[in-house]
Design a binder for these strands. Structure first.
Lengths: 263, 263
DNA sequence: CGCTAAGTTGAGAGATGTCAAATATAGTGG
DNA sequence: CCACTATATTTGACATCTCTCAACTTAGCG
Protein backbone atom coordinates (compact mmCIF):
# COMPACT_ATOMS: atom_id res chain seq x y z
CA UNK A 1 0.00 0.00 0.00
CA UNK A 2 2.72 2.42 0.88
CA UNK A 3 5.09 3.23 -1.94
CA UNK A 4 8.65 1.98 -1.82
CA UNK A 5 10.19 3.53 1.15
CA UNK A 6 13.88 3.67 0.48
CA UNK A 7 14.93 6.98 -1.02
CA UNK A 8 15.19 5.53 -4.39
CA UNK A 9 18.90 5.66 -5.17
CA UNK A 10 17.49 7.94 -7.77
CA UNK A 11 18.58 7.08 -11.30
CA UNK A 12 20.91 9.72 -12.60
CA UNK A 13 18.42 10.66 -15.19
CA UNK A 14 19.38 13.34 -17.65
CA UNK A 15 17.86 16.67 -16.69
CA UNK A 16 15.17 18.00 -19.00
CA UNK A 17 16.88 19.45 -22.01
CA UNK A 18 16.57 23.19 -21.39
CA UNK A 19 17.93 22.97 -17.83
CA UNK A 20 21.63 22.23 -17.58
CA UNK A 21 22.57 21.01 -14.10
CA UNK A 22 26.27 21.21 -13.53
CA UNK A 23 26.12 19.63 -10.07
CA UNK A 24 26.95 16.05 -9.44
CA UNK A 25 24.53 13.96 -7.50
CA UNK A 26 25.28 11.55 -4.70
CA UNK A 27 23.02 8.96 -3.21
CA UNK A 28 23.77 6.77 -0.23
CA UNK A 29 20.83 5.72 1.88
CA UNK A 30 20.17 3.29 4.67
CA UNK A 31 17.18 2.74 6.88
CA UNK A 32 17.27 4.07 10.42
CA UNK A 33 15.36 3.10 13.51
CA UNK A 34 14.74 6.82 13.65
CA UNK A 35 13.02 7.71 16.85
CA UNK A 36 12.19 11.35 16.29
CA UNK A 37 11.44 11.35 20.00
CA UNK A 38 15.10 11.18 20.90
CA UNK A 39 16.56 13.26 18.10
CA UNK A 40 18.45 16.35 19.20
CA UNK A 41 16.57 18.34 16.58
CA UNK A 42 13.08 17.29 17.58
CA UNK A 43 12.05 20.77 18.71
CA UNK A 44 12.92 22.32 15.35
CA UNK A 45 12.24 19.55 12.91
CA UNK A 46 9.15 17.72 11.75
CA UNK A 47 7.77 17.14 15.25
CA UNK A 48 7.96 20.83 16.20
CA UNK A 49 4.76 21.83 17.92
CA UNK A 50 3.66 18.28 18.59
CA UNK A 51 3.34 17.44 22.26
CA UNK A 52 6.08 15.34 23.82
CA UNK A 53 3.81 12.43 24.57
CA UNK A 54 2.56 12.34 21.01
CA UNK A 55 5.97 12.04 19.42
CA UNK A 56 5.59 8.31 19.18
CA UNK A 57 3.16 8.99 16.35
CA UNK A 58 6.18 9.42 14.13
CA UNK A 59 7.60 6.02 15.01
CA UNK A 60 5.55 4.51 12.26
CA UNK A 61 7.35 6.54 9.63
CA UNK A 62 9.92 4.51 7.79
CA UNK A 63 12.69 7.04 7.63
CA UNK A 64 16.04 6.47 6.07
CA UNK A 65 19.24 8.38 6.37
CA UNK A 66 21.12 9.65 3.37
CA UNK A 67 24.51 11.31 3.08
CA UNK A 68 25.17 14.10 0.64
CA UNK A 69 28.68 15.35 0.00
CA UNK A 70 29.48 19.06 -0.10
CA UNK A 71 28.46 20.52 -3.44
CA UNK A 72 26.33 17.55 -4.36
CA UNK A 73 22.67 17.66 -5.14
CA UNK A 74 19.99 16.06 -2.97
CA UNK A 75 17.44 16.55 -5.72
CA UNK A 76 17.03 18.67 -8.80
CA UNK A 77 14.33 20.60 -10.56
CA UNK A 78 12.10 18.09 -12.29
CA UNK A 79 13.02 15.08 -10.19
CA UNK A 80 9.97 13.07 -9.13
CA UNK A 81 8.73 14.07 -5.71
CA UNK A 82 8.49 11.19 -3.28
CA UNK A 83 10.26 12.35 -0.15
CA UNK A 84 10.59 15.30 2.10
CA UNK A 85 14.03 15.60 3.62
CA UNK A 86 14.88 16.73 7.11
CA UNK A 87 18.37 18.12 7.49
CA UNK A 88 20.05 15.99 10.12
CA UNK A 89 23.50 17.50 9.84
CA UNK A 90 25.15 20.04 7.61
CA UNK A 91 23.27 22.57 5.54
CA UNK A 92 21.75 23.07 2.12
CA UNK A 93 20.79 25.78 -0.27
CA UNK A 94 17.81 25.71 -2.59
CA UNK A 95 18.32 27.13 -6.05
CA UNK A 96 16.10 27.85 -9.00
CA UNK A 97 17.53 27.48 -12.49
CA UNK A 98 16.26 29.79 -15.17
CA UNK A 99 15.82 28.64 -18.72
CA UNK A 100 18.94 30.54 -19.68
CA UNK A 101 21.00 28.66 -17.12
CA UNK A 102 21.34 31.43 -14.56
CA UNK A 103 20.36 30.25 -11.17
CA UNK A 104 19.50 31.98 -7.96
CA UNK A 105 19.65 30.76 -4.40
CA UNK A 106 16.18 30.97 -2.94
CA UNK A 107 16.60 29.42 0.44
CA UNK A 108 19.01 28.26 3.10
CA UNK A 109 18.37 25.15 5.18
CA UNK A 110 20.02 24.39 8.50
CA UNK A 111 19.71 21.39 10.79
CA UNK A 112 16.10 20.44 11.41
CA UNK A 113 14.75 22.30 8.41
CA UNK A 114 12.54 20.44 5.97
CA UNK A 115 13.42 20.43 2.29
CA UNK A 116 11.33 19.54 -0.69
CA UNK A 117 7.90 20.89 0.14
CA UNK A 118 7.58 22.59 -3.22
CA UNK A 119 7.46 19.18 -4.85
CA UNK A 120 3.92 18.62 -3.66
CA UNK A 121 2.67 21.17 -6.19
CA UNK A 122 2.72 18.75 -9.08
CA UNK A 123 4.73 15.71 -8.17
CA UNK A 124 8.11 17.01 -9.24
CA UNK A 125 10.66 19.06 -7.36
CA UNK A 126 10.54 22.68 -8.40
CA UNK A 127 13.98 23.61 -7.14
CA UNK A 128 17.44 22.14 -6.65
CA UNK A 129 18.80 21.26 -3.22
CA UNK A 130 22.57 21.52 -2.96
CA UNK A 131 24.64 20.60 0.09
CA UNK A 132 26.77 23.48 1.34
CA UNK A 133 28.93 21.05 3.29
CA UNK A 134 28.93 17.32 3.88
CA UNK A 135 25.46 16.64 5.14
CA UNK A 136 22.99 13.99 6.21
CA UNK A 137 19.24 14.03 5.75
CA UNK A 138 16.33 11.91 6.91
CA UNK A 139 14.20 10.95 3.95
CA UNK A 140 10.51 11.06 4.81
CA UNK A 141 8.10 9.34 2.42
CA UNK A 142 5.60 12.06 1.66
CA UNK A 143 2.67 9.85 0.94
CA UNK A 144 3.19 7.92 4.11
CA UNK A 145 3.51 11.11 6.09
CA UNK A 146 0.29 12.45 4.62
CA UNK A 147 -1.58 9.33 5.63
CA UNK A 148 -0.03 9.18 9.04
CA UNK A 149 -0.78 12.75 10.01
CA UNK A 150 -4.25 12.69 8.50
CA UNK A 151 -5.36 9.96 10.84
CA UNK A 152 -4.05 11.53 14.02
CA UNK A 153 -5.54 14.67 15.48
CA UNK A 154 -2.31 15.53 17.29
CA UNK A 155 -0.38 15.65 14.07
CA UNK A 156 -3.18 16.67 11.76
CA UNK A 157 -1.75 20.05 10.89
CA UNK A 158 1.93 19.20 10.74
CA UNK A 159 2.27 19.32 6.97
CA UNK A 160 0.08 22.37 6.56
CA UNK A 161 2.03 24.18 9.21
CA UNK A 162 5.34 23.30 7.59
CA UNK A 163 4.19 24.51 4.22
CA UNK A 164 2.59 27.64 5.55
CA UNK A 165 5.81 28.48 7.34
CA UNK A 166 7.67 28.18 4.10
CA UNK A 167 5.14 30.49 2.48
CA UNK A 168 5.58 33.04 5.22
CA UNK A 169 9.34 32.82 4.94
CA UNK A 170 9.18 33.26 1.18
CA UNK A 171 6.93 36.27 1.55
CA UNK A 172 9.36 37.85 3.99
CA UNK A 173 12.13 37.21 1.53
CA UNK A 174 10.16 38.99 -1.17
CA UNK A 175 9.69 41.91 1.17
CA UNK A 176 13.40 41.93 1.78
CA UNK A 177 14.31 41.79 -1.89
CA UNK A 178 11.70 44.37 -2.73
CA UNK A 179 12.15 47.04 -0.12
CA UNK A 180 15.57 46.77 1.44
CA UNK A 181 18.96 48.20 0.52
CA UNK A 182 22.03 46.03 0.12
CA UNK A 183 23.12 46.88 3.63
CA UNK A 184 19.74 46.02 5.11
CA UNK A 185 19.62 42.73 3.26
CA UNK A 186 23.03 41.70 4.51
CA UNK A 187 22.19 42.77 8.06
CA UNK A 188 18.92 40.88 7.90
CA UNK A 189 20.64 37.82 6.54
CA UNK A 190 23.22 37.79 9.34
CA UNK A 191 20.59 38.26 12.03
CA UNK A 192 18.48 35.51 10.51
CA UNK A 193 21.34 33.04 10.45
CA UNK A 194 22.35 34.08 13.96
CA UNK A 195 18.86 33.50 15.30
CA UNK A 196 18.61 30.11 13.69
CA UNK A 197 22.04 29.03 14.87
CA UNK A 198 21.09 30.02 18.39
CA UNK A 199 17.84 28.08 18.17
CA UNK A 200 19.97 25.05 17.32
CA UNK A 201 22.16 25.39 20.36
CA UNK A 202 25.08 27.17 18.73
CA UNK A 203 26.31 30.62 19.56
CA UNK A 204 23.97 33.32 18.38
CA UNK A 205 26.80 35.79 17.95
CA UNK A 206 29.58 33.86 16.31
CA UNK A 207 29.34 31.35 13.52
CA UNK A 208 30.80 29.96 10.36
CA UNK A 209 29.08 30.88 7.12
CA UNK A 210 28.93 27.96 4.77
CA UNK A 211 28.13 30.05 1.70
CA UNK A 212 30.58 31.86 -0.53
CA UNK A 213 30.15 35.56 -1.23
CA UNK A 214 28.67 34.65 -4.57
CA UNK A 215 26.09 32.38 -2.97
CA UNK A 216 25.15 34.97 -0.39
CA UNK A 217 24.84 37.48 -3.18
CA UNK A 218 22.68 35.14 -5.17
CA UNK A 219 20.44 34.65 -2.15
CA UNK A 220 20.14 38.38 -1.45
CA UNK A 221 20.04 39.45 -5.08
CA UNK A 222 23.36 41.25 -4.86
CA UNK A 223 26.66 40.81 -6.63
CA UNK A 224 29.47 39.22 -4.68
CA UNK A 225 31.46 42.44 -4.72
CA UNK A 226 28.57 44.25 -3.10
CA UNK A 227 28.33 41.61 -0.40
CA UNK A 228 32.04 41.96 0.26
CA UNK A 229 31.88 45.74 0.42
CA UNK A 230 28.87 45.62 2.70
CA UNK A 231 30.63 43.28 5.10
CA UNK A 232 33.52 45.69 5.21
CA UNK A 233 31.27 48.66 5.81
CA UNK A 234 29.45 46.92 8.65
CA UNK A 235 32.78 45.92 10.10
CA UNK A 236 34.14 49.45 9.91
CA UNK A 237 31.18 50.53 12.00
CA UNK A 238 31.88 47.81 14.58
CA UNK A 239 28.57 46.08 13.96
CA UNK A 240 30.20 42.81 12.99
CA UNK A 241 33.59 41.24 12.51
CA UNK A 242 34.02 39.21 9.38
CA UNK A 243 37.04 37.11 8.55
CA UNK A 244 36.37 35.20 5.40
CA UNK A 245 33.59 32.84 6.42
CA UNK A 246 33.86 33.46 10.14
CA UNK A 247 31.32 35.99 11.43
CA UNK A 248 30.98 37.61 14.80
CA UNK A 249 28.01 39.82 15.51
CA UNK A 250 29.24 42.61 17.74
CA UNK A 251 26.13 44.77 17.88
CA UNK A 252 22.90 42.89 17.18
CA UNK A 253 20.77 45.87 18.18
CA UNK A 254 22.69 48.06 15.80
CA UNK A 255 22.05 45.62 12.99
CA UNK A 256 18.38 45.40 13.92
CA UNK A 257 18.14 49.16 13.93
CA UNK A 258 19.52 49.20 10.42
CA UNK A 259 16.62 47.12 9.28
CA UNK A 260 13.80 48.48 11.34
CA UNK A 261 14.16 52.19 11.14
CA UNK A 262 15.75 53.06 7.82
CA UNK A 263 13.79 55.12 5.31
CA UNK B 1 -17.21 19.41 16.77
CA UNK B 2 -16.65 21.69 13.85
CA UNK B 3 -15.91 25.24 14.78
CA UNK B 4 -18.40 27.99 14.08
CA UNK B 5 -18.83 28.12 10.40
CA UNK B 6 -19.92 31.59 9.55
CA UNK B 7 -16.99 33.79 8.70
CA UNK B 8 -17.07 35.46 11.99
CA UNK B 9 -18.17 39.02 11.28
CA UNK B 10 -14.78 39.57 12.69
CA UNK B 11 -14.66 42.14 15.47
CA UNK B 12 -12.86 45.23 14.28
CA UNK B 13 -10.11 44.63 16.73
CA UNK B 14 -7.36 47.18 16.95
CA UNK B 15 -4.31 46.10 15.02
CA UNK B 16 -1.22 45.31 17.09
CA UNK B 17 0.35 48.57 18.07
CA UNK B 18 3.37 48.76 15.77
CA UNK B 19 1.36 48.01 12.65
CA UNK B 20 -0.88 50.81 11.46
CA UNK B 21 -3.56 49.57 9.06
CA UNK B 22 -5.15 52.35 7.11
CA UNK B 23 -7.63 50.11 5.34
CA UNK B 24 -11.19 49.79 6.38
CA UNK B 25 -12.69 46.39 6.79
CA UNK B 26 -16.02 45.15 5.58
CA UNK B 27 -17.82 42.01 6.54
CA UNK B 28 -21.05 40.73 5.09
CA UNK B 29 -21.50 36.99 4.99
CA UNK B 30 -24.27 34.56 4.25
CA UNK B 31 -24.33 30.83 3.90
CA UNK B 32 -24.52 29.31 0.41
CA UNK B 33 -25.66 25.95 -0.77
CA UNK B 34 -22.32 26.00 -2.52
CA UNK B 35 -22.07 23.21 -4.98
CA UNK B 36 -18.48 23.51 -6.09
CA UNK B 37 -19.52 21.00 -8.73
CA UNK B 38 -21.48 23.60 -10.66
CA UNK B 39 -19.28 26.64 -10.06
CA UNK B 40 -17.88 28.26 -13.17
CA UNK B 41 -14.47 28.36 -11.46
CA UNK B 42 -14.32 24.72 -10.46
CA UNK B 43 -11.40 23.94 -12.74
CA UNK B 44 -9.23 26.64 -11.23
CA UNK B 45 -10.39 26.78 -7.65
CA UNK B 46 -10.24 24.41 -4.70
CA UNK B 47 -11.45 21.39 -6.67
CA UNK B 48 -8.79 21.75 -9.36
CA UNK B 49 -7.29 18.37 -10.09
CA UNK B 50 -10.06 16.44 -8.40
CA UNK B 51 -11.98 14.17 -10.73
CA UNK B 52 -15.39 15.30 -11.85
CA UNK B 53 -17.20 12.45 -10.14
CA UNK B 54 -15.46 13.20 -6.86
CA UNK B 55 -16.53 16.82 -6.69
CA UNK B 56 -19.42 15.92 -4.46
CA UNK B 57 -16.84 15.43 -1.73
CA UNK B 58 -16.90 19.16 -1.29
CA UNK B 59 -20.63 19.28 -0.74
CA UNK B 60 -20.08 18.67 2.93
CA UNK B 61 -18.14 21.88 3.30
CA UNK B 62 -20.23 24.60 4.86
CA UNK B 63 -19.17 27.48 2.69
CA UNK B 64 -20.44 30.99 3.02
CA UNK B 65 -20.22 33.89 0.67
CA UNK B 66 -18.83 37.24 1.72
CA UNK B 67 -18.71 40.53 -0.12
CA UNK B 68 -15.72 42.85 0.14
CA UNK B 69 -15.86 46.37 -1.23
CA UNK B 70 -13.03 47.77 -3.33
CA UNK B 71 -10.20 48.88 -1.11
CA UNK B 72 -11.50 47.00 1.90
CA UNK B 73 -9.63 44.33 3.74
CA UNK B 74 -10.68 40.69 3.83
CA UNK B 75 -8.24 40.02 6.63
CA UNK B 76 -5.18 41.62 8.11
CA UNK B 77 -1.84 40.59 9.46
CA UNK B 78 -2.42 39.13 12.90
CA UNK B 79 -6.08 38.26 12.46
CA UNK B 80 -6.91 34.79 13.74
CA UNK B 81 -6.81 32.21 11.00
CA UNK B 82 -10.03 30.23 10.65
CA UNK B 83 -10.90 30.36 6.97
CA UNK B 84 -9.37 30.06 3.59
CA UNK B 85 -11.06 32.24 1.00
CA UNK B 86 -11.72 31.39 -2.60
CA UNK B 87 -12.08 34.42 -4.86
CA UNK B 88 -15.51 34.11 -6.44
CA UNK B 89 -15.54 37.44 -8.21
CA UNK B 90 -13.26 40.45 -8.34
CA UNK B 91 -9.61 40.36 -7.34
CA UNK B 92 -7.34 40.91 -4.36
CA UNK B 93 -3.81 41.80 -3.53
CA UNK B 94 -1.82 40.46 -0.61
CA UNK B 95 0.42 42.91 1.18
CA UNK B 96 2.99 42.66 3.92
CA UNK B 97 3.35 45.55 6.33
CA UNK B 98 6.78 46.28 7.74
CA UNK B 99 7.27 47.49 11.26
CA UNK B 100 7.95 50.95 9.92
CA UNK B 101 4.63 51.04 8.12
CA UNK B 102 5.93 50.55 4.59
CA UNK B 103 4.10 47.78 2.88
CA UNK B 104 4.71 45.75 -0.21
CA UNK B 105 2.34 43.86 -2.42
CA UNK B 106 3.39 40.24 -2.42
CA UNK B 107 0.68 38.60 -4.44
CA UNK B 108 -2.23 39.08 -6.79
CA UNK B 109 -5.34 36.90 -6.63
CA UNK B 110 -7.84 36.47 -9.42
CA UNK B 111 -11.08 34.49 -9.59
CA UNK B 112 -10.66 30.96 -8.30
CA UNK B 113 -7.44 31.69 -6.42
CA UNK B 114 -7.24 30.71 -2.77
CA UNK B 115 -6.27 33.29 -0.19
CA UNK B 116 -5.10 32.88 3.35
CA UNK B 117 -2.86 29.82 3.22
CA UNK B 118 -0.10 31.58 5.11
CA UNK B 119 -2.34 31.67 8.17
CA UNK B 120 -1.80 27.97 8.79
CA UNK B 121 1.76 28.69 9.91
CA UNK B 122 0.76 29.73 13.39
CA UNK B 123 -2.94 30.38 13.51
CA UNK B 124 -2.81 34.02 12.48
CA UNK B 125 -2.81 35.59 9.06
CA UNK B 126 0.67 36.70 8.07
CA UNK B 127 -0.41 39.13 5.37
CA UNK B 128 -3.20 41.54 4.50
CA UNK B 129 -5.74 40.78 1.79
CA UNK B 130 -7.14 43.88 0.11
CA UNK B 131 -9.86 43.91 -2.54
CA UNK B 132 -8.73 45.61 -5.75
CA UNK B 133 -12.37 46.00 -6.81
CA UNK B 134 -15.73 45.00 -5.37
CA UNK B 135 -15.36 41.30 -4.78
CA UNK B 136 -16.95 38.19 -3.39
CA UNK B 137 -15.25 35.27 -1.71
CA UNK B 138 -16.27 31.84 -0.51
CA UNK B 139 -15.14 31.35 3.06
CA UNK B 140 -13.86 27.82 3.64
CA UNK B 141 -13.48 26.68 7.25
CA UNK B 142 -9.90 25.45 7.36
CA UNK B 143 -10.32 22.95 10.11
CA UNK B 144 -13.29 21.42 8.41
CA UNK B 145 -11.46 21.30 5.10
CA UNK B 146 -8.51 19.56 6.73
CA UNK B 147 -10.73 16.91 8.21
CA UNK B 148 -12.71 16.46 5.05
CA UNK B 149 -9.77 16.01 2.74
CA UNK B 150 -7.88 13.82 5.19
CA UNK B 151 -10.59 11.20 5.13
CA UNK B 152 -10.94 11.01 1.37
CA UNK B 153 -8.23 9.60 -0.83
CA UNK B 154 -9.47 11.55 -3.84
CA UNK B 155 -8.97 14.85 -2.06
CA UNK B 156 -6.14 13.84 0.22
CA UNK B 157 -3.57 16.12 -1.32
CA UNK B 158 -5.71 19.13 -2.08
CA UNK B 159 -4.38 21.36 0.69
CA UNK B 160 -0.79 20.27 0.26
CA UNK B 161 -0.99 20.92 -3.44
CA UNK B 162 -2.48 24.36 -2.94
CA UNK B 163 0.20 25.34 -0.49
CA UNK B 164 3.00 23.88 -2.52
CA UNK B 165 1.78 25.84 -5.53
CA UNK B 166 1.93 28.99 -3.51
CA UNK B 167 5.48 28.12 -2.48
CA UNK B 168 6.46 27.58 -6.10
CA UNK B 169 4.86 30.85 -7.12
CA UNK B 170 6.64 32.70 -4.33
CA UNK B 171 9.94 31.18 -5.34
CA UNK B 172 9.42 32.28 -8.93
CA UNK B 173 8.65 35.75 -7.67
CA UNK B 174 11.91 35.78 -5.75
CA UNK B 175 13.72 34.75 -8.89
CA UNK B 176 12.02 37.57 -10.72
CA UNK B 177 12.85 40.16 -8.09
CA UNK B 178 16.37 38.87 -7.79
CA UNK B 179 17.50 38.44 -11.34
CA UNK B 180 15.36 40.47 -13.69
CA UNK B 181 15.50 44.06 -14.91
CA UNK B 182 12.59 46.45 -14.59
CA UNK B 183 11.59 45.76 -18.15
CA UNK B 184 11.68 42.02 -17.67
CA UNK B 185 9.63 42.21 -14.51
CA UNK B 186 6.95 44.27 -16.17
CA UNK B 187 6.89 41.99 -19.20
CA UNK B 188 6.68 38.96 -16.96
CA UNK B 189 3.91 40.52 -14.94
CA UNK B 190 1.84 41.28 -18.03
CA UNK B 191 2.31 37.80 -19.45
CA UNK B 192 1.40 36.26 -16.12
CA UNK B 193 -1.80 38.24 -15.83
CA UNK B 194 -2.62 37.52 -19.47
CA UNK B 195 -2.17 33.80 -18.99
CA UNK B 196 -4.35 33.75 -15.91
CA UNK B 197 -7.05 35.86 -17.51
CA UNK B 198 -7.12 33.47 -20.43
CA UNK B 199 -7.37 30.47 -18.12
CA UNK B 200 -10.46 32.12 -16.67
CA UNK B 201 -12.15 32.51 -19.99
CA UNK B 202 -11.26 36.13 -20.67
CA UNK B 203 -9.15 37.40 -23.49
CA UNK B 204 -5.54 36.54 -23.13
CA UNK B 205 -4.43 39.60 -25.03
CA UNK B 206 -6.58 42.42 -23.75
CA UNK B 207 -7.58 43.12 -20.18
CA UNK B 208 -8.19 45.67 -17.53
CA UNK B 209 -5.55 46.02 -14.84
CA UNK B 210 -7.07 46.55 -11.45
CA UNK B 211 -3.89 47.79 -9.83
CA UNK B 212 -2.53 51.31 -9.86
CA UNK B 213 1.01 51.99 -11.06
CA UNK B 214 2.03 52.26 -7.44
CA UNK B 215 0.57 48.86 -6.64
CA UNK B 216 2.22 47.26 -9.64
CA UNK B 217 5.45 48.89 -8.62
CA UNK B 218 5.07 47.61 -5.10
CA UNK B 219 4.48 44.12 -6.45
CA UNK B 220 7.47 44.21 -8.77
CA UNK B 221 9.73 46.14 -6.43
CA UNK B 222 9.85 49.16 -8.70
CA UNK B 223 8.81 52.78 -8.25
CA UNK B 224 5.62 53.85 -9.95
CA UNK B 225 7.53 56.17 -12.25
CA UNK B 226 9.63 53.26 -13.43
CA UNK B 227 6.51 51.21 -14.13
CA UNK B 228 5.07 54.07 -16.13
CA UNK B 229 8.24 54.59 -18.13
CA UNK B 230 8.55 50.88 -18.80
CA UNK B 231 4.98 50.71 -20.10
CA UNK B 232 5.81 53.56 -22.43
CA UNK B 233 8.98 51.93 -23.61
CA UNK B 234 7.22 48.62 -24.32
CA UNK B 235 4.50 50.53 -26.12
CA UNK B 236 6.99 52.44 -28.25
CA UNK B 237 8.32 49.11 -29.40
CA UNK B 238 4.83 47.88 -30.30
CA UNK B 239 4.93 45.07 -27.77
CA UNK B 240 1.88 46.32 -25.90
CA UNK B 241 -0.64 49.11 -25.91
CA UNK B 242 -1.37 50.65 -22.56
CA UNK B 243 -4.06 53.21 -21.90
CA UNK B 244 -4.26 53.85 -18.23
CA UNK B 245 -5.46 50.55 -16.86
CA UNK B 246 -6.41 49.02 -20.19
CA UNK B 247 -3.73 46.72 -21.60
CA UNK B 248 -3.45 45.06 -24.96
CA UNK B 249 -0.67 42.61 -25.59
CA UNK B 250 0.39 43.06 -29.20
CA UNK B 251 3.40 40.78 -29.30
CA UNK B 252 3.38 38.04 -26.68
CA UNK B 253 6.38 36.31 -28.23
CA UNK B 254 8.30 39.54 -28.13
CA UNK B 255 7.55 39.94 -24.47
CA UNK B 256 8.50 36.35 -23.79
CA UNK B 257 11.76 36.83 -25.64
CA UNK B 258 12.51 39.76 -23.39
CA UNK B 259 12.36 37.47 -20.41
CA UNK B 260 13.87 34.30 -21.71
CA UNK B 261 16.92 35.37 -23.59
CA UNK B 262 18.27 38.50 -21.99
CA UNK B 263 21.70 38.42 -20.42
C1' DC C 1 55.58 25.59 -3.08
C1' DG C 2 52.71 26.70 -6.73
C1' DC C 3 47.93 26.52 -8.30
C1' DT C 4 43.15 27.57 -8.13
C1' DA C 5 39.17 29.38 -6.04
C1' DA C 6 37.59 32.85 -2.99
C1' DG C 7 37.70 37.32 -1.47
C1' DT C 8 38.96 42.37 -1.56
C1' DT C 9 39.33 46.81 -3.50
C1' DG C 10 39.10 50.61 -6.95
C1' DA C 11 37.25 53.33 -10.86
C1' DG C 12 33.71 54.20 -13.76
C1' DA C 13 29.08 53.02 -16.01
C1' DG C 14 24.31 52.24 -15.97
C1' DA C 15 19.88 51.32 -14.12
C1' DT C 16 16.57 52.77 -11.16
C1' DG C 17 15.23 56.01 -7.64
C1' DT C 18 14.13 60.87 -6.20
C1' DC C 19 12.11 65.15 -6.69
C1' DA C 20 9.29 68.21 -9.12
C1' DA C 21 5.93 69.79 -12.37
C1' DA C 22 2.34 69.14 -15.71
C1' DT C 23 -1.80 66.41 -17.23
C1' DA C 24 -5.37 63.38 -17.00
C1' DT C 25 -9.07 60.99 -14.70
C1' DA C 26 -12.64 59.91 -11.49
C1' DG C 27 -15.53 61.06 -8.07
C1' DT C 28 -18.43 64.64 -5.49
C1' DG C 29 -21.46 68.11 -4.53
C1' DG C 30 -23.81 72.05 -6.25
C1' DC D 1 -24.37 69.09 -16.30
C1' DC D 2 -20.56 71.44 -14.48
C1' DA D 3 -17.04 72.87 -11.51
C1' DC D 4 -13.95 71.33 -8.17
C1' DT D 5 -11.00 68.34 -5.78
C1' DA D 6 -8.30 64.43 -4.92
C1' DT D 7 -5.97 60.79 -7.04
C1' DA D 8 -3.50 58.72 -10.67
C1' DT D 9 -0.35 59.10 -14.44
C1' DT D 10 3.19 60.91 -17.29
C1' DT D 11 7.44 63.14 -18.10
C1' DG D 12 11.89 65.45 -17.24
C1' DA D 13 16.28 66.38 -14.83
C1' DC D 14 19.26 64.78 -11.72
C1' DA D 15 21.10 61.77 -7.83
C1' DT D 16 22.46 57.48 -6.07
C1' DC D 17 23.03 52.82 -5.50
C1' DT D 18 24.59 48.79 -7.22
C1' DC D 19 26.79 46.60 -11.05
C1' DT D 20 30.70 45.87 -14.21
C1' DC D 21 35.26 45.25 -15.20
C1' DA D 22 39.76 44.77 -13.70
C1' DA D 23 43.62 44.15 -10.70
C1' DC D 24 45.31 42.38 -6.75
C1' DT D 25 45.46 39.57 -2.28
C1' DT D 26 44.49 35.71 0.50
C1' DA D 27 43.36 31.05 1.70
C1' DG D 28 43.13 26.25 0.86
C1' DC D 29 45.05 22.16 -1.17
C1' DG D 30 47.71 18.90 -3.77
Amino acid sequence: MHPAVTPSLRPRHQPPAPLPFPMRSSAAAHAIASPCATCRLRDICLPAGVHEEQLSAFDRLTLSRRKVAAGDCLYRQGDPFLFLYAVHSGSFKATLTRRDGIDQTTNLFLGGDILGLDGAANGAHASNAVALEDAEVCAIPYDQLTRLTAGNSATQHVIGRLMAREIVRDQRMMLMLGTMSAEQRVAGFLLNVARRMKARGYSGTEFHLRMTRAEIGSYLALKLETVSRTFRSLQDRRLVEVNQKHVRICDPEGLARLIGLNE
